[in-house]
Design a protein around this nucleic acid. Structure first.
Lengths: 188, 188
DNA sequence: TCTCGACATGTCGGTATTGACATGTCGAGA
DNA sequence: TCTCGACATGTCAATACCGACATGTCGAGA
């Protein structure tokens, strides 16, 4: 259901063909928000066109069709964004992995967490580098998708990094006293 | 595919029946990581049992069956967690909404962002309150799923809150020159 | 005793999504 | 000229998933 609105949003921001949309889903939107392959996108575009929410505005080389959101489409997008505050559905394999770390033993958990801390730090650095390259956002220019997404990604990585470091400290601190083999402190 | 490992993880941490697992997916794990209903869980438990990754350790009242991960199941979980660093699949309607805000006009966008900033601040406060109530983590006790998840949720809300405030500032600053109504000191 | 809500497990049909396969175009460089 | 990689769009079968429906048990309180 959300794919529909994702497409509506992208096509409101910028008329595009299916191929370009597919690329977009490999970037920010697919990495942080909603992933989809071309096999979902093309049929959905046809459905949206049938419903009058998007329309073909141009046909180019290699049979490409450029779509844009219609006024009805933009209205539907706005309705969806503004209207209800539904409890969101989440499917995030990365976060699932983070949580399940608690099912591992101490050493494995620490190893994994250190890897995660490193990776997120790297990703954050990379995003900061890109941001610096592009210079400060131009005053007066609209704040677009790319800028919002990049900043979100950066803060996301920083948050996960902070969490991983916190977790490392907690796990390192727990369970330390006993010279004993391992776990299961009968504490309290 | 991930549901399988989510169940394996939960059953490694704590033997449970399908009903209890269903409840678990309504809590932290379902809210931040991976949601699933009982109609997915029960068939998956049967598949896992068939594959020897979990087993029934106890049959209780009302036909309840308590499952636990077998050694093979724990090995499979470990393999999945440690082995590859795959690029994660993400489906997060909330984040999608955040990103698509850029397709709205200024006023709608600001209204929405303010709502998000408020909600995330509230959620964070609530989580902090709960944490305070439960007192500091007992030294020496294992760092469990619940603690990891709560801290993750807290940092997550703080990150989104920070992002929303940043976005509000950016959008307020852009596009202001016009003698327009209010805010936005064009400072600098 | 009766009722009701929480506990507990399931099926089934329809939809959403994915992966494998298929097809064809265009431009650049060997 | 030929080839190859990016561009561009699709189908189809299999799987994953959700909502609606179905069934039954147990304990507490009226």
């Amino acid at each position: 259901m959300s794919l529909q609105h994702a497409l509506l949003g992208l096509l409101t921001l910028q008329p595009s063909c299916g191929y370009e949309l597919t690329k977009a889903f490999e970037d920010d939107i697919g990495r942080y928000a909603w992933q989809a392959g071309h096999t979902s996108i093309y049929p959905e575009l046809n459905r949206l066109a049938g419903a009058g929410l998007v329309e073909v505005t141009h046909e180019g080389a290699r049979g490409s069709r450029t779509y844009a959101a219609t006024p009805e489409g933009r209205a539907e997008l706005r309705r969806w964004l503004m209207e209800p505050p539904p409890q969101a559905k989440v499917r995030n394999e990365m976060v699932l992995r983070l949580f399940l770390i608690s099912a591992l033993d101490r050493d494995d958990a620490l190893e994994l967490l250190r890897g995660i801390a490193d990776q997120t730090a790297e990703s954050a650095t990379e995003l900061r580098r890109i941001r610096a390259e592009n210079g400060p956002p131009t005053i007066g220019s609209p704040v677009g998708f790319g800028l919002l997404a990049a900043e979100f990604g950066l803060r996301q990585y920083e948050a996960v990094h902070g969490w991983a470091q916190w977790a490392i400290e907690q796990i390192s601190a727990a369970d330390q006293p006993a010279a004993a083999a391992d776990s299961a402190p009968s504490a309290r």
